[in-house]
Design a protein around this nucleic acid. Structure first.
Lengths: 212, 212
DNA sequence: ATCAATACCAAGCGCTTGCTTGGCAAGCAT
DNA sequence: ATGCTTGCCAAGCAAGCGCTTGGTATTGAT
């Protein structure tokens, strides 16, 4: 189980999110609990993971978990919220820094792939795979974050269509992209033959993201 | 919860699979158990579905399930095996009927989308979403079927690359396609604004499956 | 020195889980 | 008529589940 090494700038971004209170300090007991939970949820699924599993992973007893969270589901909700907020922050800063649509598209693809493959936290894929394990209320809460996230994608894809980089409708293309990117978690591995950078290139190529 | 109406030719294909012993007669008690299980596994996940849920769905008591299956996991395995065998049969007959590579590609996309959206049985999406719930032995067993399935796809994509219809490596393109197609289960709905036929067209377009 | 907050343990409660056992009834071939 | 197979019920067991309660040790602020 290789762990991705966060870069210095990523640590700085994380520290900022922590100081804003949007993300839990990963060194704190609660933060370690969240990280262990995300790991286990990804491995065995939310329903397949017991609170005893989580507690054992961080070296406490199962009952002690409920000093930090009111119930098991709230752990999943927190993992999801922090995963998407972390990715969103990186995406927004990347888009702000870049000018052209293809560069922005590429950056978004890169950010999403980095999130999926655990560059900072392993919880991102849970947003889709364990979505149904959230209560309706929690789903609504997380959905707001997802809409900010998807909106950013759709904006860039709309620009791409307007500028003739693709012929596919933004909402359709975004669905295709989301699926293709999410699926990489099942076959692509960092430190494998194909680099993440190459993967991004191939995805842009396959998406037909080139002038018509 | 709208149910797709199987066509006459699909019913004939199904009957043949049943007579070969590859698929359980859906009218039999065991077949009804499989259909109900697939439905519930899709709704609530394998770990989130209890044997009492399944039993209630077909109107029996939970213990009676184990007259038909040795354990809960074997139900999932059977659902997966029958789903992939059904789809595989349709794919092989479609490819055999068609001559050109683009036509075959389109047919495979169509078959997979039909399987995903429950044209015959709702179990197909479980192959990915509930894969980790299978024991290692069961995974190996189902993997053989999946390899036949993926092999067929990869053959057609290899032809496509050789004939200049795409620039992306077959194994990469197949991963992208699988993800994009699987994701449709989260947003596309039969009887919606977009027809399945249109969806297939848009996917072929987005895949860049056109002469270079 | 005192107080309050934080992080955890020890024990266990009430419930649900997958699964077992023994038996009953209907259908069917002999 | 008999015996066998199939499909199910009734009852319940052992284990595991999420979560609660009451208490303790440590820490930093007052």
């Amino acid at each position: 189980m290789s762990q991705a090494q966060p870069s210095q700038t990523q640590q700085a971004e994380l520290a900022q999110l922590v100081s804003q209170g949007l993300v839990t300090d990963p060194a704190s007991p609660k933060g370690r609990l969240l990280a262990a939970s995300a790991q286990l949820f990804k491995q065995k699924g939310f329903a397949g993971t017991t609170v005893r599993d989580i507690a054992a992973e961080v070296g406490i007893l199962s009952g002690s978990i409920f000093h930090h969270f009111p119930n098991k589901e709230s752990i999943l909700k927190a993992v999801m919220a922090e995963a998407i907020l972390t990715c969103l922050a990186r995406m927004e800063s990347a888009v702000a820094k870049l000018e052209t649509t293809p560069a922005r598209f590429r950056a978004l693809v890169r950010c999403e792939l980095e999130a999926i493959h655990g560059i900072s936290g392993v919880g991102f894929t849970l947003l889709t795979s364990e979505w149904r394990c959230l209560s309706a209320d929690s789903q609504a809460e997380i959905l707001k974050l997802r809409q900010r996230y998807e909106g950013l994608h759709r904006e860039v894809l709309a620009d791409a269509k307007a500028q003739g980089w693709t012929q596919v409708e933004p909402f359709l293309l975004r669905h295709f992209m989301r699926g293709a990117l999410a699926e990489t978690s099942n076959w692509f591995h960092l430190n494998g033959d194909l680099s993440l950078e190459d993967l991004v290139d191939q995805i842009c190529l396959a998406a037909g993201m080139r002038p018509s």
